[in-house]
Computed example of a mutant assay.
Amino acid sequence: MTDNAADYTTDLDVVADPDLLLDLRNVSLLRDGRALLDDITWQVALGERWVILGPNGAGKTTLIRIAGAEEHPTSGRAYVLGERIGRTALRDLRTMIGVSSAALGGRIPPTEKVGDLVISAGYAVLGRWIEEYDEIDREQAVMTLEQVGAMHLVDRTWGTLSEGERKRVLLARAIMVNPELLILDEPTAGMDLGGREDLVTYLSALALDEDAPATVMITHHVEEIPEGFTHAMLLDEGVAVAQGPIDEVLTSENLSRTFHQPIELDRIGGRYFARRVRVGGTHRA
């Protein structure tokens, strides 16, 4: 991918807001004539923790690919960490963004050792080749794995890990680089109940830590939103149904509009729970 693939405006007087880590202005992305994202305006500031929810095909992954400096929008302006996508070297931006995603996991060789996989994040490579790592790197990797409850996996290979173990290792890799922005694509998917709750508890502690990076997380389930998340966006068919402070966005009415069926939302002890309230809703085909 070339960094000049989308020069979508000639305005030279538009500059990035230094207080925003993400600043998307009227961003759209078209593929095969279909709008995967349609006129999205979205800002993420220091200290904010965002969750993005929506049905399958809503555009969630496309949105965070732009936020993670992995995709150019077709139109609009996208600033990531103060740099405009399309006018900067994306590789340099990616070194400051921690990403945990299934797509990343699918590119990891099964023979890759967990310790090397986590350490290599600091070198912006996927897996170890001929690099020589310092002892401080190894200590940081072990400490990071310990934080996510995966230190016992340090000498295992990727191909021997369960889905839940892989999620923990990917999270450790994402935070190994001390990122300015942390992007989590369904971090608890594939976990059993105990593993999910362990990881949600850790993510909650991270969200409540004032020194932790700004975080954007995708999930399909409100039950997986950690306590401490501050903002939410609901996406449907590439359009933002609602976005803003989480208590204002996560409502029964907004969820019903987004998922096209009657949803009732409850909040218990800082966590959210949703259910369908009657049979015969209007779920989209």
Rank of each mutant, 00 (worst) to 15 (best):
G127D: 11
E70S: 07
E48T: 04
D23Q: 13
I246G: 00
V177H: 00
G76K: 02
D266I: 04
A69D: 05
A212E: 00
H220D: 07
D198L: 07
G127S: 11
Y8M: 15
V200F: 03
A212I: 06
E48N: 06
G149F: 08
R107E: 10
T61I: 01
Q147C: 04
V239F: 08
T61L: 12
V279K: 10
Q147M: 08
N56P: 04
D211L: 11
T95Y: 05
G122L: 03
Q140C: 15
T62V: 04
A102M: 08
N254M: 09
D23F: 02
V169H: 04
R25N: 12
R257G: 03
W129L: 08
G194T: 14
A103S: 03
I268T: 04
I52L: 11
D192R: 14
V239K: 06
I136A: 15
K113C: 10
R94H: 09
L206M: 15
Y272D: 04
R278G: 13
A189G: 03
V125D: 01
D155L: 14
G194H: 06
P262F: 07
H72R: 06
A232S: 08
T282F: 15
Q43C: 09
F273Q: 00
G57R: 08
V14K: 14
T10V: 14
G82V: 06
A285E: 14
Q261N: 08
R284Y: 06
L36W: 06
